[in-house]
Simulated assay, not measured.
Amino acid sequence: MNAPHLVGDWIRGITIRQPWATCILAGKTVENRTVHWPWRGWVLIHVGKAKPEPAVLRDPLVATAIRGRELHLGAVIGVARLVDCHLDQGPERCTNSWAQRAAHHLVLADVHELALPVPARGALSAWKPTRDLVGQVLQQLPGLKP
């Protein structure tokens, strides 16, 4: 069976540390990065293996977002559309409470959480997922298409 939607340039992976990745599933729409990302389109939300810093977990914004959620490690936990990336424009223009100053803001939309995390390896920059990984994700999100 030829399944072109399992490969190609329509989807990438993005590795995000905890608890930020879980915060995205809970409504965080901005991911902060040090460099501009030219990629636009669907991204797998992948969690790295590093455990979160305890002090970060006590931040009120983070604590509210992750309350009652498991903080998975080393797996794809969701999918989102990366719709924009812009340099911080100051608090007058970037009013999102998750946006950090002097950072590039990756703007995410259409977030879909996976019911079962899919173990996977990621990379620091946007990475191309394997056909098998995309297939495992699409088993849980059959309506997701390029």
Rank of each mutant, 00 (worst) to 15 (best):
A120T: 03
I11E: 10
R93H: 05
C23H: 09
P19S: 13
P119Y: 01
R69V: 06
V137S: 05
L124R: 09
G78Q: 11
Q89R: 15
A65R: 12
K145E: 09
R67K: 13
V79C: 00
Q140K: 04
L87H: 13
A63F: 08
I16W: 07
A21I: 05
A120R: 02
W127C: 12
A65F: 10
P19A: 10
R33E: 04
H86A: 11
L87D: 13
C23E: 05
G13L: 02
R69T: 03
L82P: 00
P52W: 06
W10P: 13
L57D: 14
T64S: 13
V76R: 12
L114Q: 11
R121I: 06
A123D: 08
D9G: 15
A50C: 09
T130G: 07
W37N: 13
R67Y: 02
V79E: 02
A3G: 10
A99W: 00
T95F: 01
W10N: 13
H72M: 04
W10R: 11
I66D: 04
L6M: 13
P38A: 14
Q89Y: 05
G8C: 13
R93S: 07
K145M: 00
G135H: 03
I77D: 10
W42E: 14
L106T: 01
R93A: 13
C23P: 08
P54T: 04
